[in-house]
Each structure stands twice: as structure tokens, then as C-alpha cells.
Design a protein around this nucleic acid. Structure first.
Lengths: 201, 201
DNA sequence: CTTTCTATATATAAAGG
DNA sequence: TCCTTTATATATAGAAA
């Protein structure tokens, strides 16, 4: 990257590799610290050199960040590592853990997080699932709005046409959000089969 | 660090913070990957944005690196209690099963299936998650297309001796147009009344 | 939140201690 | 492995889309 661009592949010369490791490791940790400070992010960074030496950094506590990571990704196994072997022998436990992992991966993918290994077909399938999900969520939401509106109308009818202030700020957002989600008036471009995603606006 | 040196302290302006986070996060992950490749280092990097989104990278497997880290730092203890194997297994099993249930429910909700008990806020949150997911899925998909196109152009160029100007990656069109025509992932629920929410528009 | 552009601040490859 | 120095490759602040 400097006097001569280096290719990003393993440096064969051992000495050069160590030197580069030293310098880049420092830079990396510096950047990590800056990011956590500047943007109020929670960061954990663990680095093992090729010689096995450990370097780490955590904006809060390493265990805390790792635990939070586990909660999101739920690689669960982490939590049980002391008795991992024993647990793997236990069929019920092993099965359950496997299930958790499967579902966790699927969840992450639905959140758009673990997409890199996927092929085109899988991405399309994901897309379709997401479109279906959002469609139903929007539908449910609008049903709630309709009920609310109906209830409000009943109330107004039973009153004498007076203005009331009981309306939460929610009803304003109701209208906005609903409009947003249901812009079916102007169909986008061409689609051959799917019509669901137009609801995304 | 550029037109004006910035102080390394929390950026108060929310928008500015997000932008900086986005850019620096990318830089950080890039550096981490380069270091692991160049120097054959084992790296785990976990970042939570201030809004709670997770980003992570691991040169091998996250669990593997974390476990190695734990071994070095001796963070973990437990399992000292002999004769508790059965209990551990049982509790692990119970925990895992509970996790499976939680994740299954979340999955179903993302698929738009188990929405009835939810309140407005939860629906909105779901919607946001789904939109984020689909956005990233589409982005990933279009990136694949772009790569493919670029590869094809290179090929054509070397075959015919033509020069091609790929220009900017202005393929927003791909994203919007790219809805598939294949892969039928049968959506679980009925669509017949799926236009209900349009009435509010 | 992501990305583009541009002007500059940083990081770092090389080489030598 | 760690510190220089120097010349150059990258990263990124700010503004805007």
C-alpha cells in the first residue's frame, strides 16, 4: 500500500510478515478504538498472531460484547463450551442446539446479515419470503388502523361534533405510515410475477 | 481526520455519527480482513452500532476464536463442580429448547405468520426489520449481477477486442427491476384479501 | 443508512537501527 | 520484535444525493 502496492495475500517472508503484522495490528486497534468512541459503538476485537500471541480490545467488557453477540447470533455453543463434549453426546441437547443454530442462521439471513455464501436462487427465495412477510405485517397493521378509525368514528358520532384531544400522536403516524406502506397507486416498473414488493414504496 | 482533524470523542450530531459509523466501519472491517490475510492471523471482530445493529467478521469461526480467547484469558471457569454433568446437560437442553422456541416464533413473525398477539409498535419494528432485510438481500443480489455483468464484459472484450466502459455502478435499476421470475417459495398465508390495507390510502 | 466526490489526514512499505 | 524516516497508498471529513 505504499511505495509499492502490496497484494492482499499471505506474506511469505516471515520477517516481513511479522513487521507488517505489528504495524497493521496497531493501526487496526487504533481504528477500532476510534470507531467505538466516535460513534458510541460497542466493539470487541480479538487477534491471534500467526505465532499464537493474543491481542484484544473491547469497548466495554469482552464478555459483555461476546454475550450480546451470542444473543443476536445465538451460536449458543459458546455458552456451554466447558461441557461441550458431554452435551454433544446428549442427543436431546445436541438436536436442540442444532435447531437453534439453523434457526439463528435463517433469522440472520432474513435480517439481511449473513448473505455472502448464498447463491442467486437462495437470495430470490429469501426475497420472496421477506416480501410475503412484509405484506402480511402491513396488512395486519392496517387492520389495526381500521379498527381504531372505526372506533374513533363511533366516538365522534356519539358526541356532538366537538373536537377532542384524546388522539395520541399515534394517529398522525397512523396515516403517514399507512400511506407509505400502501402506495399502490403508482406501480413501479415491470414485473413478471411478483407484485408484492411494490408495497415497499 | 481530513479536511479538518476531528477530535476522537463521541459525535453528537446523529446524522453525522451514522455517516461516520458507516464509513469507518467499512474501513475497519477491511483492515481486519487484510490483516488476517496478509499475516495469517486469526481475527474476530464484533461491532454493535449505537442503534443496536450487529456487524461481525471472523477469519475462521467466531466461536472458535472466542473460545481460544477464553482459553487464553481464562475467563471461563465453571464445570468445576463434578457430578453435575447431568444437571448441566439438562439445563443446557432446556435452554436450547427454549431458544429454539423463541427463534421459531421470531421466524414465523418475520414470515408474517404469528402476528395476532402483537401491538402496533411491535408490528412497526417487524416491518422495519423486514425492510432492512429485503433491502440488503436486493443489494446483495444486484451486486452478484454486477459482478457477472462485469465478468461477461471482460470476456467479450478479450474475445472481440472491444473496449467497454463499465462506468459507475449506477445499477439502482437492477435492484428495482430485479425481482425474480422463478423460484416459487409458497407464501404461507392467503393473499386474497391482501389489499385490505390499501383502503386507507 | 449508504454512497459519491474531493481535499487532506493517516497509515504504512521499505530500509536501516 | 519495535522505532525511525520517507514516499506514497489509503482512509475519510464534509457536503450532497
Amino acid at each position: 500500500m505504499v511505495r509499492q502496492r502490496i497484494e492482499i495475500k499471505k506474506i511469505v517472508n516471515v520477517t516481513a510478515r511479522q513487521v507488517t503484522f505489528s504495524k497493521r495490528r496497531r493501526g487496526l486497534f487504533k481504528k477500532a478504538k476510534e470507531l467505538s468512541t466516535l460513534c458510541d459503538a460497542e466493539i470487541a476485537l480479538i487477534v491471534f498472531s500467526s505465532t499464537g500471541r493474543l491481542f484484544d480490545f473491547s469497548s466495554s467488557s469482552m464478555g459483555q460484547v461476546i454475550e450480546r453477540h451470542n444473543q443476536q447470533t445465538e451460536n449458543l455453543i459458546q455458552l456451554n463450551q466447558p461441557s461441550l463434549e458431554l452435551q454433544l453426546d446428549n442427543s436431546a441437547s445436541a438436536i436442540a442446539i442444532k435447531e437453534v443454530e439453523e434457526r439463528t442462521l435463517e433469522l440472520r439471513r432474513l435480517r439481511g446479515e449473513e448473505l455472502h455464501g448464498l447463491g442467486l436462487d437462495e437470495l430470490k427465495k429469501l426475497e420472496k419470503t421477506l416480501e410475503g412477510g412484509i405484506s402480511r405485517v402491513l396488512k395486519t397493521k392496517s387492520e389495526m388502523f381500521e379498527k381504531e378509525i372505526a372506533a374513533l368514528k363511533r366516538k365522534m358520532g356519539s358526541d356532538i361534533g366537538q373536537t377532542h384531544e384524546q388522539g395520541q400522536s399515534s394517529d398522525q403516524s397512523i396515516i403517514t405510515t399507512t400511506n407509505n406502506g400502501s402506495s399502490a397507486a403508482a406501480p413501479p416498473q415491470d414485473y413478471d410475477s411478483s407484485d408484492t414488493y411494490l408495497k415497499l414504496g
